[in-house]
Amino acid sequence: MIANLPFIAIALLIGIAFAIILLKKNMIKMVMGIGIMESAVNLFLITIGYREEGIAPIFTSAPEGSVMVLPTVQALTLTNIVIGVAATALMISMIMIIYKKYGTINSDKMRRLKE
């Protein structure tokens, strides 16, 4: 049970993120929802790389027969954090322009492109 706790947290976080993205009309909140989803995915990646009693994956001077956590997923998480920062920054700056031009950040009002 306790080992599954991170996965329950991930499911909850993704659920919350989708609820925010689908229900909130405020664009800033939507971006926050995407941020939560990103964190959930990062948490997921870190969790699948975790090993009981694992040590940091540094091969030089590692004790004999020790278990290491998986390094690949940590690299993936770092990459995803960087990508997430870029995506969030771009989205926020676009919302700024939308606010300047449309006077609103409500996604209901932001619909000059439709049909």
Partner: peptide, 17 residues
């Protein structure tokens, strides 16, 4: 059909889900 293309980004993601 046309009202489905509402232009609201929340609806787009609802369709995804």
């Amino acid at each position: 059909l046309i009202p489905l293309h509402s232009g609201v980004v929340n609806d787009y993601l609802t369709w995804f889900v």
